[in-house]
Lab assay of single mutants.
Amino acid sequence: MLDDRARMEAAKKEKVEQILAEFQLQEEDLKKVMRRMQKEMDRGLRLETHEEASVKMLPTYVRSTPEGSEVGDFLSLDLGGTNFRVMLVKVGEGEEGQWSVKTKHQMYSIPEDAMTGTAEMLFDYISECISDFLDKHQMKHKKLPLGFTFSFPVRHEDIDKGILLNWTKGFKASGAEGNNVVGLLRDAIKRRGDFEMDVVAMVNDTVATMISCYYEDHQCEVGMIVGTGCNACYMEEMQNVELVEGDEGRMCVNTEWGAFGDSGELDEFLLEYDRLVDESSANPGQQLYEKLIGGKYMGELVRLVLLRLVDENLLFHGEASEQLRTRGAFETRFVSQVESDTGDRKQIYNILSTLGLRPSTTDCDIVRRACESVSTRAAHMCSAGLAGVINRMRESRSEDVMRITVGVDGSVYKLHPSFKERFHASVRRLTPSCEITFIESEEGSGRGAALVSAVACKKACMLGQ
């Protein structure tokens, strides 16, 4: 009897593995994704193909990295998701002549009506938060230079001027797309009239992360975010950046690689679950690469896999709870928690219980395998993109072996128990001629924006502006 049951459990697990095998990517698959990513990057950089390229390769006008001589107080704003952060950054000489960066910050959550109302409502709310922060720190009387981390696709015309191309991540505030974001912020500050600010720089969160990590390690020339969304930036040779005049030196390019796949480059790798996630998203047909990796989508992918296993009578005796059938019910943090389970399955059992399920031991094991399959594919897909960037940098610099540091931020990278190990191992397999160091950014977005502002202020002083 026991043997029969054991055989049935083994057969069930084997069927589960057959279904989950769809998520496995072979090294040849990853090399294919990497080569296609490089081709799209090239198209994004070139003037004649930029418009139709899915990977936009947006110039950021960040050319210099901090040298350690900029000092002063800077205000930093960070808008990239449902939370908005205001930070005071003091850049100065530390002990023994070292450079020191001290920060104080406060988080504000953005109400739904500000995210989806008008641009005026959104930026009025942001300036209200700045006003509140300055009151708390008794700094209303000071006109501070301000660095703005704005983590949406922007076409820069200068370091302090950028046109919002399109909202992502659930934002829909009308009247912002096609307009200068810094102008919208300046107008809102003017409307309030109770404080003055000098907006000197606007950067993407990947750029802010790279600059913040450069402060720790001067070989950091790539910034990457794996959180709600997924994106990367890197220092490109100016001669390859056709959208900006000049051939000397390097400029940081914001790849906006989340949109890779929007022209069909990933079609052969998309599964039924991916198509369902895409169809029910706020932007169907867009940001397809990001939807395979980002935390906004990972939990939902797992939920759809679990429903398939229920329908195949391989999980929960073929019956799903009402909660499990509800879109968004299986949160991405559950994926991390399930994979963090120590082996007694308590954590998995508790999560499934909150979803109205009474799982068996085998159910718990199957749910864990589903989570591992989805998150491992995410790590491997992400590795193909980064390997594409790094191999490109090595080739354009004609280096036999390139040493490089990548600064990384984002909740999936930082909080998932195995993502970074799987990701690092896969990147290294795909970049055999590179020695890569990964560092995690601390308060990256805010500190990085302030350091970019410090560079901009120093330049302005040198130019006598």
Rank of each mutant, 00 (worst) to 15 (best):
L2Y: 11
D3M: 09
D3P: 10
M8K: 14
A11D: 10
A11M: 14
A11K: 14
A11I: 14
K12T: 13
K12W: 11
K15W: 12
L20S: 07
L20P: 05
L25T: 09
Q26V: 10
D29K: 09
L30G: 14
K32F: 11
E40H: 00
E40N: 08
M41R: 01
T49E: 04
H50M: 05
E51G: 13
E51I: 09
A53F: 05
L58I: 05
T60R: 03
Y61W: 04
T65E: 06
E67N: 08
S69K: 15
E70L: 13
V71S: 15
G72W: 03
G72T: 06
F74H: 09
L77Q: 01
D78I: 05
L79E: 02
G80I: 02
G81N: 02
T82F: 02
N83W: 06
V89I: 05
K90L: 04
G92W: 14
G92C: 06
E93S: 08
G94I: 13
E96G: 09
Q98N: 12
W99P: 10
W99M: 15
W99C: 15
S100P: 09
V101N: 13
K102E: 11
H105E: 10
H105Q: 10
H105L: 06
M107H: 06
E112M: 11
E112C: 09
G117Y: 00
T118M: 02
T118Y: 02
L122G: 02
Y125M: 01
S127P: 04
S127V: 14
S131R: 10
S131H: 01
F133I: 01
L134W: 00
D135E: 07
K136M: 12
H137R: 09
K143C: 07
P145M: 15
S151Y: 04
H156G: 01
E157T: 05
I159R: 01
D160V: 02
G162N: 01
I163L: 02
W167S: 01
W167T: 07
G170V: 01
F171D: 04
K172Y: 03
A173E: 01
G178M: 03
V182M: 03
V182G: 00
V182S: 05
L185A: 04
L185P: 13
I189C: 02
R191K: 07
G193S: 09
G193W: 05
F195P: 00
F195T: 01
E196N: 00
E196Y: 10
D198W: 09
V200R: 06
A201F: 00
M202D: 00
V203Y: 04
N204P: 04
N204C: 06
D205M: 02
D205L: 03
T206M: 00
V207W: 07
A208M: 08
M210P: 09
M210R: 06
C213K: 00
Y214A: 15
Y215C: 15
Y215N: 06
E216F: 14
H218Q: 07
C220T: 11
E221S: 14
G227W: 01
T228G: 00
G229H: 01
N231M: 00
Y234A: 00
E237Y: 10
M238Y: 01
M238D: 05
V244A: 13
E245S: 13
M251L: 02
V253M: 14
V253C: 05
N254K: 06
N254G: 03
T255C: 05
W257K: 06
G258T: 04
G261V: 00
S263G: 13
S263H: 06
S263W: 08
G264S: 11
L266T: 05
E268Y: 07
F269Q: 05
F269C: 08
L271D: 04
E272T: 15
Y273A: 11
L276T: 14
V277M: 01
E279M: 15
S281T: 11
A282M: 13
N283I: 13
N283T: 06
P284V: 09
G285Q: 12
Q287F: 02
Q287Y: 13
L288V: 13
Y289L: 01
L292V: 10
L292S: 08
I293N: 02
G294A: 13
G295A: 03
G295C: 04
Y297L: 07
G299E: 07
E300Y: 02
L301P: 10
V302G: 08
R303L: 05
V305R: 09
L306Q: 09
R308H: 14
V310I: 03
E312W: 08
Q323F: 13
Q323L: 11
R327N: 15
G328F: 11
F330E: 03
F330V: 09
R333V: 14
F334E: 15
F334V: 10
S340I: 12
S340W: 11
D341Q: 12
G343T: 11
G343Q: 09
R345I: 06
R345K: 13
I348L: 12
Y349T: 11
L355W: 06
L355H: 02
L357N: 05
T361S: 13
C364F: 07
D365W: 12
I366Q: 10
R368L: 09
R368D: 13
R369S: 15
A370D: 06
E372Y: 09
E372V: 13
S373Q: 10
A379Q: 04
M381I: 11
M381S: 06
M381E: 01
S383T: 04
A384S: 08
L386A: 11
A387D: 01
G388D: 03
R392A: 09
M393W: 04
M393Y: 12
R394E: 14
E395N: 07
R397M: 08
S398N: 13
S398F: 10
S398E: 10
T405Y: 09
Y413T: 03
K414P: 05
L415I: 07
H416E: 05
P417C: 12
S418P: 08
F419T: 05
K420F: 05
R422I: 12
F423A: 04
F423K: 07
H424K: 08
H424V: 14
A425V: 08
S426L: 11
V427R: 02
V427S: 15
R429V: 13
R429K: 11
R429N: 12
E435H: 12
F438Q: 06
F438Y: 09
G446L: 15
G446E: 02
G448C: 08
A450N: 00
A450V: 00
L451Q: 01
A454R: 03
A454P: 05
V455M: 15
A456D: 09
K458P: 15
K459I: 05
A460S: 11
L463K: 11
